[in-house]
């Protein structure tokens, strides 16, 4: 059952990784504006042919 120790530590490390990812996301400003990106994603990069 020693494997339990290894698994627990592994799972905690993974969880810590997610926590770090969350902190990084907050730090990089992703939570500062939660609306504009949802509009921005819909803009076309290339100009489409005009009518």
């Amino acid at each position: 059952m020693k494997i339990i120790f290894f698994l627990i530590i592994l799972s905690l490390l993974i969880a810590l990784g997610f926590l770090a990812a969350f902190i990084w996301a907050v730090r990089s400003g992703q939570y500062d504006d939660d609306y504009t990106p949802s509009v921005r994603i819909l803009f076309d990069d290339k100009k489409t042919d005009s009518e």
Binding site: L12, A15, F18, L19, F22, I23, V26, Y31, D32
Partner: peptide, 21 residues
């Protein structure tokens, strides 16, 4: 200054992380 506001997200994140584990 945005960081004042962000601190709260960190606190929430840490609490959620610890709570789950």
């Amino acid at each position: 200054q945005a960081p004042v506001d962000r601190r709260f997200y960190y606190q929430l994140g840490v609490a959620g992380f610890a709570f789950g584990n």
